[in-house]
Design a protein around this nucleic acid. Structure first.
Length: 486
RNA sequence: GGCGUCGUGGCCGAGUGGCUAGGCAGGGCUCUGCAAAAGCUCGUACAGCGGUUCGAAUCCGCUCGUCGCCUCCA
């Protein structure tokens, strides 16, 4: 078995993956704040970590995958109301109605993208007691202070003994110099301090009682508390989007160190951003697209609808640590490749073994694993899968063959990577009335063959072209005519 | 302004000190009644300028540009 290498954001290097406990992986990924529909950028991060989760499972690890739901609103600055409250006010709903609505949307969309659910999906509001305890612990350890019912983490004091900036590679002195002017109303001793607990103003709906009065938890705290609760004070992998590296993950490290006096995470992993038509996706500028709009094709940015599988494949064609740009043109190209891959998978099912093998399957298989073992390099894996596609097509036309054992190995490996690891769905499976449809199309193929036998080209071409318009493509081969659905 | 990232052929996107992925699009050929599909085949790219080296797209420096973070964000 080859060695799995993971790029660790903490060291900025690829490192051999060694789990704390042989055979087990503890992985925490920062989930969404459920205050509106998930956008495609969010989805990319979760699909990236779904690939990682799936590969661990494929390798036989027992994985505990924890991904939180942030359902407590967090302030965007010192004065404004939080996102969930804002949304609640706008939609005239209870905050928890907002939370429920968009949690359901989140699950629904991820299911469409064939992302496996995490093992545990804890919510921030479900762990208030633990968060209050953590605040108290940090206070007791002298690394936080209370002001007017709020509790702040004392970053400068923490930095005397620990390294605030260990993950983001920021120097605290520089951040002090470069801090923008705040409104002066802040209770913080220093601008880089962050809230562990915030006093709730009277109009703030989401509020809980605490030793410091009614309030709500700071944003960074929930992840520290929930990851510790379900994975322990030290665990293997913590993931999230690149934009969470600072301050969120930096603060998580500081909080965990302040509570338990040890580094919480062995491997930090950060997925890169998805841009849209060359720019950052942003709800505020309108440069964004909702998954639902992709499935229906109802968007001024798209020429047609795309299936979730195609979009997933498109994302897998880029490495998770690279910025990926989503555009109609790029996805259109991916769709064609996706179809070719899936068609080959189907063809492979009906292939018979030959006497000898003209292709080195074991070598190919090893290359596939090498790719994934190199920091989950799905684009290179896919390149190798297309090598198999080529061989499959050659076998189909009788220009290549595989002996029984090799054919079996090719099937096993290809199915494992396509379905289990990449999580691409079997198209035939998702087509509902496929039996009826194929019966009808096969009847049309017979009629066309009769017309062709009679050299009635006008009729045979009409059948072919009309079917094409309906998205049914006929393929004439040596063994007869087959069809695919576009 | 600070920190970081990246700059690859028409497009998307890997990779890496010498053997130069892959997908899409395009040209040619085979197959075909014509097509499509499939197969074969052709495009020799790594921002610019210096340097290190027998040899760099790959390492170093500078310049230009991109994007991101520095404030809620996957």
């Amino acid at each position: 078995m080859q060695v799995l290498n993971i790029y660790n954001s903490l060291t900025n290097k690829k490192e051999v993956f060694k789990p704390l406990q042989e055979g087990y992986v503890g992985m925490y990924v920062c989930g969404p704040t459920v205050y509106s529909n998930v956008h495609l950028g969010n989805v990319r991060t979760f699909i990236s970590f779904d690939l990682i989760y799936r590969y661990f499972l494929h390798l036989g690890y027992k994985v505990r995958y924890v991904r939180n739901i942030t359902d407590a609103g967090h302030l965007t600055d010192d004065t404004a109301e939080d996102k969930i409250s804002t949304k609640a006010r706008l939609e005239k709903l209870e905050p928890m109605e907002i939370v429920q609505k968009y949690t359901i949307d989140f699950h629904h969309i991820l299911e469409k993208f064939n992302a496996l659910p995490p093992s545990i999906e804890p919510t921030a509001t479900g762990h208030l007691i633990e968060q209050i305890e953590a605040v108290q612990t940090i206070l007791d350890n002298g690394l936080a202070y209370e002001v007017n019912g709020s509790v702040y983490f004392d970053v400068l004091k923490y930095n005397e003994k620990e390294n605030y900036g260990i993950l983001s590679k920021r120097k605290i002195e520089e951040s002090i110099e470069n801090t923008r002017d705040l409104d002066g109303q802040s209770d913080k001793k220093n601008p880089q301090d962050f809230a562990l607990w915030k006093r709730a103003e009277p109009e703030h709906i989401q509020r809980w009682n605490s030793p410091w009065g009614a309030g709500f938890p700071g944003w960074h705290l929930e992840c520290t508390v929930m990851s510790t609760k379900y994975l322990g004070e030290q665990f293997d992998i913590h993931g999230g989007g690149m934009d969470l590296k600072f301050p969120h993950h930096e603060c998580e490290i500081a909080q965990a160190q302040a509570c338990y006096h040890k580094a919480p995470v062995n491997y930090w992993m950060h997925g890169n951003m998805l841009t849209f038509n060359g720019r950052k996706m942003s709800k505020s500028t309108g440069n964004n697209i909702l998954p639902e709009e992709i499935f229906t094709g109802e968007s001024k940015f798209l020429s047609k609808a795309y299936s979730a599988g195609v979009v997933r494949f498109f994302m897998m064609q880029a490495h998770y640590r690279s910025i990926l740009d989503f555009s109609d043109e790029a996805v259109l190209a991916a769709e064609k490749g996706y179809n070719r891959l899936m068609e080959a998978v189907e063809i492979l099912q009906g292939l018979e073994p030959g006497k000898t093998s003209t292709y080195e399957v074991s070598e190919w298989k090893e290359k596939c694993y090498d790719a994934m073992n190199d920091d989950f390099n799905s684009p290179v894996l896919i390149a190798h899968l297309f090598e198999a596609v080529k061989q499959i097509n050659l076998m189909k036309v009788g220009k290549a063959s595989l002996a029984d054992a090799d054919l079996k190995s090719l099937k096993e490996t290809l199915y494992a990577f396509v379905f289990d690891v990449l999580g691409l769905e079997d198209k035939a499976k998702s087509e509902g009335d496929s039996n009826k449809l194929s019966g009808i199309v096969n009847m049309m193929i017979e009629l066309r063959n009769e017309a062709r036998a009679n050299k009635d080209w006008a009729l045979s071409d009409k059948i072919r072209d009309d079917l094409q318009k309906l998205g049914v493509q006929l393929k004439d081969g040596k063994e007869g005519t087959t069809f695919t659905l576009n």
